[in-house]
Amino acid sequence: MSLTRGDVEKIAHLARLELTEAEVALYQSQLSAILDYATRLNELNLEGISPTAHAVTQQNVWREDVAEPSLPMDAVLFNAPKQANNQFVVQAVLDEG
Protein backbone atom coordinates (compact mmCIF):
# COMPACT_ATOMS: atom_id res chain seq x y z
CA MET A 1 0.00 0.00 0.00
CA SER A 2 1.65 3.18 -1.14
CA LEU A 3 0.13 6.55 -0.29
CA THR A 4 0.68 9.48 -2.59
CA ARG A 5 1.57 12.96 -1.48
CA GLY A 6 -1.96 13.97 -2.39
CA ASP A 7 -3.39 11.20 -0.18
CA VAL A 8 -1.41 12.48 2.80
CA GLU A 9 -2.51 16.07 2.21
CA LYS A 10 -6.13 14.97 1.92
CA ILE A 11 -5.97 12.96 5.15
CA ALA A 12 -4.34 15.91 6.92
CA HIS A 13 -7.15 18.18 5.74
CA LEU A 14 -9.81 15.72 6.90
CA ALA A 15 -8.07 15.54 10.29
CA ARG A 16 -7.66 19.34 10.40
CA LEU A 17 -3.91 19.11 10.83
CA GLU A 18 -1.49 21.64 9.39
CA LEU A 19 1.61 19.74 8.30
CA THR A 20 4.98 21.06 7.20
CA GLU A 21 6.52 19.91 3.89
CA ALA A 22 8.88 17.67 5.83
CA GLU A 23 6.01 16.11 7.78
CA VAL A 24 4.08 15.32 4.60
CA ALA A 25 7.10 13.47 3.18
CA LEU A 26 7.75 11.64 6.46
CA TYR A 27 4.15 10.53 6.95
CA GLN A 28 3.91 9.45 3.31
CA SER A 29 6.59 6.83 3.86
CA GLN A 30 5.75 5.91 7.47
CA LEU A 31 2.00 5.55 6.95
CA SER A 32 2.62 3.48 3.82
CA ALA A 33 4.86 1.11 5.83
CA ILE A 34 2.29 0.76 8.62
CA LEU A 35 -0.56 0.15 6.16
CA ASP A 36 1.61 -2.46 4.41
CA TYR A 37 2.00 -4.20 7.73
CA ALA A 38 -1.77 -4.09 8.19
CA THR A 39 -2.34 -6.00 4.96
CA ARG A 40 -1.35 -9.10 6.99
CA LEU A 41 -5.02 -9.19 7.95
CA ASN A 42 -5.77 -10.21 4.36
CA GLU A 43 -4.32 -13.63 5.24
CA LEU A 44 -7.34 -14.24 7.48
CA ASN A 45 -10.60 -15.64 6.23
CA LEU A 46 -13.09 -13.29 7.89
CA GLU A 47 -16.10 -14.55 5.98
CA GLY A 48 -19.09 -14.75 8.34
CA ILE A 49 -17.17 -13.42 11.37
CA SER A 50 -19.07 -10.72 13.21
CA PRO A 51 -17.17 -7.60 14.27
CA THR A 52 -16.20 -6.91 17.90
CA ALA A 53 -16.44 -3.24 18.78
CA HIS A 54 -16.21 -3.70 22.55
CA ALA A 55 -14.46 -6.56 24.35
CA VAL A 56 -16.92 -6.44 27.24
CA THR A 57 -20.27 -5.65 25.69
CA GLN A 58 -22.98 -3.74 27.48
CA GLN A 59 -26.22 -2.59 25.96
CA ASN A 60 -28.68 0.16 26.74
CA VAL A 61 -27.18 1.66 29.88
CA TRP A 62 -29.88 3.91 31.26
CA ARG A 63 -30.08 6.25 34.17
CA GLU A 64 -33.02 7.96 35.81
CA ASP A 65 -33.91 11.20 34.03
CA VAL A 66 -33.19 13.40 37.03
CA ALA A 67 -31.54 16.79 36.77
CA GLU A 68 -28.39 17.07 38.85
CA PRO A 69 -26.20 20.06 39.58
CA SER A 70 -23.75 20.96 36.79
CA LEU A 71 -20.35 22.59 37.06
CA PRO A 72 -20.55 26.32 37.84
CA MET A 73 -20.10 28.61 34.82
CA ASP A 74 -16.73 30.01 35.93
CA ALA A 75 -15.33 26.47 36.29
CA VAL A 76 -16.51 25.59 32.79
CA LEU A 77 -15.05 28.73 31.25
CA PHE A 78 -11.84 28.73 33.28
CA ASN A 79 -9.79 26.96 30.59
CA ALA A 80 -11.22 28.85 27.60
CA PRO A 81 -8.62 30.57 25.41
CA LYS A 82 -11.12 33.41 24.79
CA GLN A 83 -14.42 34.12 26.48
CA ALA A 84 -16.95 36.88 26.91
CA ASN A 85 -20.45 37.09 28.43
CA ASN A 86 -20.34 33.46 29.58
CA GLN A 87 -19.59 32.26 26.06
CA PHE A 88 -16.60 30.86 24.16
CA VAL A 89 -15.38 33.41 21.62
CA VAL A 90 -14.36 32.13 18.17
CA GLN A 91 -13.67 33.67 14.78
CA ALA A 92 -16.61 34.17 12.41
CA VAL A 93 -17.75 30.87 10.94
CA LEU A 94 -20.22 32.27 8.40
CA ASP A 95 -19.51 35.15 6.03
CA GLU A 96 -21.31 38.36 6.83
CA GLY A 97 -22.06 39.04 3.15
Partner: peptide, 25 residues
Amino acid sequence: IMLGTYALSAGYYEAYYGRALKART
Protein backbone atom coordinates in the same frame (compact mmCIF):
# COMPACT_ATOMS: atom_id res chain seq x y z
CA ILE B 1 -4.62 10.64 13.93
CA MET B 2 -3.66 10.43 10.24
CA LEU B 3 -3.64 6.63 10.28
CA GLY B 4 -7.01 6.46 12.02
CA THR B 5 -8.56 9.09 9.77
CA TYR B 6 -7.44 7.08 6.75
CA ALA B 7 -8.67 3.74 8.19
CA LEU B 8 -12.11 5.28 8.76
CA SER B 9 -12.36 7.27 5.54
CA ALA B 10 -14.85 6.59 2.77
CA GLY B 11 -13.69 3.76 0.51
CA TYR B 12 -11.19 2.34 3.03
CA TYR B 13 -13.38 1.76 6.10
CA GLU B 14 -14.31 -1.84 5.24
CA ALA B 15 -10.81 -2.77 4.06
CA TYR B 16 -9.08 -1.54 7.22
CA TYR B 17 -11.30 -0.73 10.21
CA GLY B 18 -14.01 -3.23 9.29
CA ARG B 19 -11.53 -6.10 8.85
CA ALA B 20 -9.77 -5.17 12.08
CA LEU B 21 -13.03 -5.40 14.06
CA LYS B 22 -13.68 -8.89 12.66
CA ALA B 23 -10.14 -10.05 13.37
CA ARG B 24 -10.59 -8.70 16.92
CA THR B 25 -13.39 -11.26 17.33
